[in-house]
Each structure stands twice: as C-alpha cells, then as structure tokens.
Simulated assay, not measured.
Amino acid sequence: MTARPHAQRGVAIIAALLVVVVAAALATALVDRQGQWLARLQTERNLLQGQWLLQGGLDWSGLILRMDARDNATTRLDGLWTQTLADFPVGPPEDPRRALFSGQIEDMQGRFNLRDLAQDGQIRPVAVEALQGLLRSLGQDPAAAALIAQRVAEGQPMAGRAPRALGLRDVADLAAVAGLPAGLPGVLDPYVALVPATVSININTAPAEVLAAAIQGLGLAGGRDLVAQRERGQWFIHRGDMLNRLSQVPPAALRRLDVRSDWFRVTGEVALDDTMVALQALLHRDKQGRAVIRWVRYE
C-alpha cells in the first residue's frame, strides 16, 4: 500500500517532464519559424530595395546615352557609354558600401537583328542565308538558322491573323526553341539581338563575324581588317566615308549599315547584404537623345 503514492509521484514527474519537453520543442519550433519569417522578410525587403537601386542604374544609363548623343554624331566603341561600372557604392550615406552596383551598356545595333529573319510572318531567305554565314563563322551548325527564322516568323502577325506564338524578346528566349542546341543562345548572345524595329548595323561597333554576315562579299578576313582599322582609331565618320573606304563592296551591300546606334541593352546588378538583384533592359534613344525603356526584366 505504501508504494502506490511513490508510483503516482513518479508518474506525475514523468508527465511534467514530458510537458516541459513538448513545450520546449514547441517554443524552439516557434522561434525557428519566426527566424525564417524574419529572414524571408529581410530578403524580400532587400529585393525591393535592390530593384529600386537598379532603377537608378537605368537612369544612369539614360544620362550616359543622352550625353553621348549630344557630344557625338557617331556611336563608337571608344565612347563614354562603353565604360562599365563595377562595385560602385550606392548604399545609404552612413554605409554606402552596403549596396554595390555593377552595370554595362551594350550596343544592339552592332549585332545581327534576328527580327530581320521574317517580315509579316514570312521568312526572308536572304536574312536566313546571312545568319547561316554567321553561324559558320562561329563554328555552329548553320541549320539552326532555319529553326530560329521559323520561330521569329511565328511571333509576327500576318495579314488578318494574330501571331501563332508569343514574340521573342531577348536572345535568351531562344532556349525554348525546339531543336536548338542548349548552349547556342549563349554563343550567339554577343553577336545577335532582337530589336523590335528594322534597323541598320553599326559598322563602328559590330564584330568581324557580324560585318562579314551583313556585308555581302566582304568575308571574315575583310571583317577582321575593318575591326583592326577601328582599333587603330580609324572610325567611320559618316556614310560617305563608308562608301569611299569600302569601294570594293557593291553599294547595295552597304545600305543596311550606319555609323550611329539608338538601341542599347543595359545589364546591371546590385549586391545588397547577402542578396543579389539583377536586371536586363532594352533602351531606345529617340531623336532628342532621350533613352526610352522598351522592356525590363528583373532576375
């Protein structure tokens, strides 16, 4: 009879210990969940702040492009717009290095415009042939040109009919084109663009491979010679200069060339604490030199 109270006390102690253990586990879980929620909240705050700071980067790009249009009649690779920013402090005054901005501007008219592969939903064989030549010079299968042209055509409206697919916006969108090698968009990115207008190729900024594809009869060796001339400071200053220096090329082959650009891609990123926010944007410089954002994508 005397053992029962001891047994009851033992059961009570065990029950109390179990309650303490459960309460401690619940408290720990609550603290962990709260910590995760706070970390998520801080990350989302940093993302919003990063996007806001990147907007400042777009404003910086627009200012640079406007200054370039004011000071130069040509768009060249020695212009102020070609200078990249790396780890530029954009944080608060008390800690400016808390947020670091890096960015660059790229000339989209120094590239082969994939939009030219089709017009009103109809594939343009001449443009496809030019892209095939560009692919060969890059060591890629020229058969990819037909696949890309078909996808570009599908994204264009035809007479009385809506586009069969969403239009491509950037070279990265080629990753979804069936039949293309997975790494092809990355290889093509420095050489092609998707500008939503018919534009000329800038002979002052295009690489040799693009010049060879754009100028019939020039060839890759001729394109490299033009690039070498530019590197020596022999820029093309107007269309007449272009006609004189390329007298061996039929004038018709030079019609789609120019010495100035008005379409640019801005790439930027902000490192804020442990959060990285990036963007890409397509800018069009109007006749007044103002840069208008055509599209922007945050990553």
Rank of each mutant, 00 (worst) to 15 (best):
V249N: 01
A278Q: 13
P92L: 15
F236E: 00
R40M: 13
A149Q: 09
W295I: 13
G183V: 11
I293D: 06
N204I: 05
L58K: 07
A271G: 07
R4T: 14
L38T: 15
A127V: 07
Q132L: 06
V90N: 05
D273P: 03
A149D: 05
L168D: 07
Q42R: 15
E299K: 12
L254C: 01
A73N: 12
G133A: 02
R265H: 02
L254H: 00
P89W: 09
A25L: 14
Q8S: 06
D116S: 13
A212C: 05
T74Q: 12
P157R: 12
R169A: 03
V199L: 10
Q156E: 08
H238I: 04
E154F: 06
N204T: 06
L243F: 00
A221P: 03
F236P: 02
N202R: 12
R232D: 10
L254M: 06
L54M: 08
A7D: 04
A7K: 07
P207V: 10
P89K: 09
Y298R: 13
D59A: 12
D274C: 05
L54Y: 09
P163M: 08
A143G: 11
W52T: 14
A175L: 08
L168A: 05
R70H: 06
L246M: 02
W81D: 05
A149S: 08
D141M: 04
L218H: 01
L117Q: 07
D189E: 15
P89N: 03
W235C: 01
A16Q: 07
D241H: 09
Q234N: 10
G167A: 14
A176P: 08
L134N: 03
D274H: 13
I201C: 07
G219S: 06
F88K: 03
I237M: 04
P185M: 08
A221Q: 14
A29Y: 13
F236L: 04
W295L: 07
G233C: 03
H284Y: 13
E106D: 09
A197H: 11
T74M: 02
P142L: 07
D170I: 10
R230A: 04
G240M: 01
L147I: 12
V21Y: 06
R285G: 02
Q119G: 03
Q234Y: 07
L138F: 02
A252F: 00
G103T: 06
L138E: 01
A143I: 10
A118Y: 08
H284N: 10
Q234K: 14
Q8M: 15
P92S: 11
Q140W: 04
D95F: 10
Q288T: 14
A7L: 14
A118G: 06
I237H: 02
D141E: 04
Q34I: 14
L48A: 13
V210A: 04
M158Y: 03
L17V: 13
I64A: 08
I105W: 03
A25M: 14
F236H: 00
W81H: 12
R230H: 02
V152D: 02
P250S: 00
E44I: 14
Q8T: 15
R169S: 08
Q109K: 09
G133E: 11
A39L: 15
T82C: 04
V21S: 14
V20D: 02
G160F: 06
L100Q: 04
L188H: 08
R111P: 02
Q55R: 15
N244V: 11
W263K: 02
W60A: 06
V128F: 03
G155L: 10
Q51M: 14
G167Q: 15
A206I: 06
I201T: 15
A214P: 07
L283D: 01
D32E: 15
W37D: 12
